[in-house]
Write a protein that binds this DNA or RNA. Structure first.
Lengths: 240, 240
DNA sequence: ACGTCCCTTCGACGTCCGTCGAAGCGTCCC
DNA sequence: GGGACGCTTCGACGGACGTCGAAGGGACGT
């Protein structure tokens, strides 16, 4: 392989990488993906209104994202539903968010506009908890030394102990990172995601600490849950 | 938070994400980062010649990458050395590579051009093994059911057993994924990376299975290493 | 069957950005 | 001190791309 070949090889692979990166290199498309991070399927129109652009522009963006393999679509009648294709896409977006400068690291005052309130308190984000409850849980785990929450979040030894004592088993052997920081628009602060976040969420649902409100992704903290979170992490019931 | 605020929030965060993605959305910059994935510090000129562009163009690209936090630089005299800033950057690039379409999935016939040969056989890539030897190891682990090597690579139960029996301890509790696929230009096929890949590499070096050739990142398989790889994974000594 | 709604296609506009070469500056070596 | 080398700045060029509105197609409900 001579020098020219090396150049070509480097550029070719670089072009492949760049092609994927280019899909997220536009503010509108990135906003689409961030919105879709909640695991829901959105229609093209919803995304267009969310991003404040014309429907025709949204169409071309969605074409790029679907053809690029980041999103998958389902057509139902006159509606085009899209959602995130794969967990790898979620990890890619999280990797980007980990390097993006985080503005407004402190939480905003939450609006009390009724319909959004349940969602703001607690909801499913992909397969883990989000909302102010998730923030409170994350904060409490950090304060108690169960999590390290720097630029590279990780579970501490005490954290692993706490999980096993609580009866939460984190699936092992997967390539999924145990602890991830996940960011979405409501609180604009990262909360606990990754394998541990998912296991925590699963455990909370199966133990009856939280229940889904209807078929939405909004969650309700049950009285048993209030007690459990207080016993385990010292969360004041008023915060839930 | 009314609808307009939600729009603005979505766009703002989207812009942040897009800003990072934009850094890798150019073929030349992506090729830079891919080259730097070997953990070495390259000079601006080396990168320019590698990518086949003018020095002035390389300067502007490096400015973007350094200001964006993906690379860090060290000035020595008239030289400007850059290297990857952080493990988070490596993970981002690996996340992109995981979604990029992989051309030439089969290995190329290796040139015998002497100087490159040692590097092509075995070398360090960041903190794990790369080169044909790394490919052989990865392939053997997959064949023996120690690794699952699909779109989401993972260690199997047998793989975990094999590691402990071999005396390789993988640091736990970190947020680093146990198994990752790492791609670089020489073989254009992914090889074992992640926490397991790093542990394997560390073990091979401390056990004297491999030694560094001088201060380069090229590696030499020792006779003891040849025996060990054969005993553990059945690799024919001729392949090493 | 008609109007409404969701999405798509098309053409046009403007901006952004990667590229180069020439010139200049600082460093190193002879 | 002189020359070579590595990097940077500047201006100019050209292509790529995100945006819109208008027009059209297809599905749904009345």
């Amino acid at each position: 392989m001579d020098t020219v070949d090396i150049q070509r090889a480097g550029q070719d692979v670089g072009v492949n990488l760049a092609g994927v990166a280019k899909l997220l290199a536009d503010g509108t498309r990135a906003a689409f993906c961030l919105a879709l991070l909640d695991g829901r399927a959105w229609t093209a129109n919803e995304l267009a209104r969310y991003a404040g652009i014309a429907a025709s522009t949204a169409t071309s963006h969605l074409n790029l994202l679907v053809n690029g393999g980041l999103l998958v679509e389902e057509r139902h009648g006159r509606h085009r539903y899209v959602r995130v294709a794969d967990r790898r896409v979620v990890e890619l977006i999280e990797s980007l968010a980990a390097l993006a400068p985080q503005r407004n690291a402190r939480p905003l005052s939450l609006s009390a506009s009724g319909r959004q309130q349940a969602l703001a308190r607690a909801r499913l984000c992909y397969d883990h908890l989000a909302g102010t409850v998730a923030l409170a849980i994350t904060d409490a785990m950090v304060e108690r030394g169960l999590l390290e929450w720097g630029p590279e979040p990780a579970l501490t030894g005490n954290g692993a102990l706490w999980l096993s004592e609580t009866g939460i088993t984190v699936p092992t052997g997967s390539r999924r990172p145990p602890v991830r920081a996940c960011l979405d628009w409501t609180e604009r602060r990262p909360h606990l995601a990754g394998a541990v976040g998912a296991a925590l969420c699963t455990h909370a649902l199966t133990s009856g600490w939280m229940t889904r409100i209807g078929t939405t992704r909004a969650l309700l903290v049950t009285p048993a849950g209030r007690e459990a979170w207080h016993d385990l992490l010292g969360l004041p019931p008023t915060e839930l």
